[in-house]
Amino acid sequence: MSQLDPTDHDVADEQTLKRIVDRNPSRLGVGRSGARPRTETLLTFLEDHGRARDAVLTTVDEQLIDDLGLVKIRSLVEDKDQYLARPDLGSDISEETATELRDRCEQNPQAQIIVSDGLSSTAVEANVPDLLRSLQDGLEERGLEVGTPVFVEFGRVDVMDAIGEELGAECCVNLIGERPGLRSAKSLSAYMVYDPKRGAPTAKKSVISNIHEGGIPPIEAGAEIADLLSEIVEKQASGLDLREDDREFQK
């Protein structure tokens, strides 16, 4: 967001106002026009919301999916509206899709990589190219057999349970666009699960979130995810089970 020049309007203490505005992530020191925000403040807000909405409602570029060599499938969801209203449908795949997956992908991999548009196509486009390369390299270095990477249109986090189950994967990672905030629409999360099966509870999932240039940069995130996945395979656990295992280890 752009900041207004604090000297733009009458304030008791301009130095202090500048300090407040500079260090605070909230939209402070914006002044007012009567009881309403100034026009420029309002337009900046609308611009940021517009960007967030576009990230939710647009789809990932087909060319990018091809270039990255991802096998493209779809969840049970038919369109964006249904995606938003029915998380259950975004978490599963049809019998036909399962058959297609088994035909086109390597079966019984140690690590299955999945990319989902989730709630931000912008996040996928901005981070996945660098992240995927770094993650694949990292997993190979650690000696893990990586399956054929898959892209799921209208995918939710738990779609990795269905895909992993169908492909017989030992563990899965789902790289998925996060719900955009006004400050950034580019944030991606990586959810991981050991022994994926439909209905696996949230508590069994590990997550690394806030992946974007301003948070964990994608190349770095790829290495972190590779580390965590190899730990998951080694300890045969993910989510809270992995943490509890850590606690025991510390005792």
Binding site: P25, R27, P37
Partner: peptide, 20 residues
């Protein structure tokens, strides 16, 4: 502030809306 909660990542009514 300006309807934007930068912690919870959602939008609510603004400090400005009270006066209005």
């Amino acid at each position: 502030p300006m309807g934007d909660d930068v912690m919870l990542n959602y939008q609510s009514t603004s400090y400005h809306d009270a006066g209005a």
